[in-house]
Design a protein around this nucleic acid. Sequence first.
DNA 1: AATGAATGAGGTTTCATTCAT
DNA 2: TATGAATGAAACCTCATTCAT
Lengths: 205, 205, 205, 205
Amino acid sequence: MDNRSGSRSERRASMMRQQIIQAAAPLFAQKGFHKTTTKDIALAADVSEGSLYNYFKNKEDILLGIIEDVAQEEVEKMRLVESLSEAPSDYLFSRFMHQQEKVARLNPMILAIISELVSNPNVRRRYKSLFLSPIMELLADHLQARIDLGQIQNYPPKYLSRILISLTVGIYFFQMLEDDIVIKEWEEFSRTTVDVLFEGLKAEP
Amino acid sequence: MDNRSGSRSERRASMMRQQIIQAAAPLFAQKGFHKTTTKDIALAADVSEGSLYNYFKNKEDILLGIIEDVAQEEVEKMRLVESLSEAPSDYLFSRFMHQQEKVARLNPMILAIISELVSNPNVRRRYKSLFLSPIMELLADHLQARIDLGQIQNYPPKYLSRILISLTVGIYFFQMLEDDIVIKEWEEFSRTTVDVLFEGLKAEP
Amino acid sequence: MDNRSGSRSERRASMMRQQIIQAAAPLFAQKGFHKTTTKDIALAADVSEGSLYNYFKNKEDILLGIIEDVAQEEVEKMRLVESLSEAPSDYLFSRFMHQQEKVARLNPMILAIISELVSNPNVRRRYKSLFLSPIMELLADHLQARIDLGQIQNYPPKYLSRILISLTVGIYFFQMLEDDIVIKEWEEFSRTTVDVLFEGLKAEP
Amino acid sequence: MDNRSGSRSERRASMMRQQIIQAAAPLFAQKGFHKTTTKDIALAADVSEGSLYNYFKNKEDILLGIIEDVAQEEVEKMRLVESLSEAPSDYLFSRFMHQQEKVARLNPMILAIISELVSNPNVRRRYKSLFLSPIMELLADHLQARIDLGQIQNYPPKYLSRILISLTVGIYFFQMLEDDIVIKEWEEFSRTTVDVLFEGLKAEP
DNA sequence: AATGAATGAGGTTTCATTCAT
DNA sequence: TATGAATGAAACCTCATTCAT
């Protein structure tokens, strides 16, 4: 991960891990974890199949490595969004939505991870601890701050954050299914979502 | 599917398909499609491995068969919810949420399907045409009716239905991850979600 | 085989055997014995797979049945050729060649049989006793008669018959390989063969 | 094939292919292609079943590899026979016959190939292009030379070569059928064949 | 006598992982 | 440390044959 610290050999090893991860991620994203062979990965990473096992315990371990990477990256991005803390809340939600849409579009790896969550407890554990929990915590903190500022109503942040994550997962879901509405009419869909979130569905009296 | 019509042998065949599907579904749900072997399925269905292939073209075809079944079942349930058309809208959304939660709890098969969506175009096609599209259509029709009655605001139903589906997928997602909040505090989470949907997040002026 | 004798049920059985054989032969000819499934045969014969086993011990037995049939038929034809015993010898050889070419063209079953000879001793035995030996005997007798008449030279008929059979097998061989020369220039090829047989290759002094 | 050139690993790979081919050929020859299992081959070649697939795409590819090998070998031998170009023609035909008889006796693989020709177009193509066509070309060239020298009559070589090939195929055929005459009285049979070829059957006037 | 569903042995092939070089 | 050939377990699937109806 961090390839600036440690001895030279440690740095080298870290770079190799990166090289493998960078090669494996798009493969997993395209073909799924199970349909990607170690040979595919070795070829794409330009190393031998045997070498994979010098840097990762096994194929699953590569996926876990990817999760770590993606998690770090995404949590970082989330932190940046959060830093816009003076902006009005609706602008912020809009930012959040667009951020997630971009992720779904550019980082299909996340889908491959989600797809493995179902049947793989290790992946589940790792995903929760490195990815979901940190992000939900950031979200909840942020929402609490907004509540404290009186910008949004006083709902328990732990529920609100889960609602937001659900909307995010929904974006991934529709992207994966190549849903024309969510993809081609993204701007309107996104705006509607933010509006509903802020104004509610209830008809004005 | 329909095992009351057709000749005796057709009925028998239909029952065998059911028997196999009933056996395969929980396996796929627990272990995922790829980690479930045809041997597992045959054992669970109490037939020989060879017999599987008298009723299904191949392993994937069993999954497609399951999708058909689950889809029919769920679309049916959705129709029932919809029939409560005189109830106030918020009650209805509440019903919808609870319905979905029950599904997520009792029908983990859906997750296994979703997990295969990522890497399997056939599954994707079948899921969209038999499951997602019909349900979204029902939802959209229903929402339009509510809009016409002046019960909810005039947002495009095609976007609203996708927001609701996202919330549903979110439920599956958190169920799968064994998220303590969504599972153990389901009542409160559900109520909050419906409230947010109806009233919006925006602080009262 | 003989469906005019025996009790009614025996006649029926004999007809069923014929029906199956008639259906199986072209399949074996096209796809080969191993790539033809009993299901294929049952379908083509318009009987159930199970019924095949009421008339034949197993799949191999169907092939053996076909051999019997084809053998009978071909030996019969050979007898007819032989009956033209007053004709000049070269005309007769020409007839023989054309007869064999027609067989090769219309009865590709023989190739399927030959192809199984290699690996199947039962087929080999049956083919020899019902097909090859009778035909070689007829040939040899005939050749002996010609020799006695002073029409052809006094070579041992047992060798001559084998030379003729070799030429026949060659025809099958080139037909199977879709050899343009033997197929499209059949007339010339055939004439040349007969000429060589009669006149010899040796340059005139 | 050529295991003296290329890098060390290429040489190694080439030797392994040879090892597998050497093991598979007699099996195919004895039991036929279809009744020989990959397990049989692996056992005989003293490698694991999996390893077969490091050197051959699939089982058929092993057969194709064998064809290549046998073809090369036989074409080479044919070239040697041809080089005896000063010998009298009848001696040469005699050599040709004996050469083919030896092949039939020692290289039963050819029969297994022929047996697959019937039902397998790939085998057919490969056999024609690598085996039959080159040999027939050599034969035809040689015969033309003899004609030019005035040693044999002026028949079209393309027909003569096919007659000779037919006689060859006949030898394989009778060897396979364990024909007592051709096998035990080979010398006489062979001499008779050459005599008939040269002198013709026609009774001297 | 006819059926065709059920069987299960066995076939080919794939692939994650190991290990000698 | 890097390699990639070798492995072998195990997966999916086919199909000749049987047998209850």
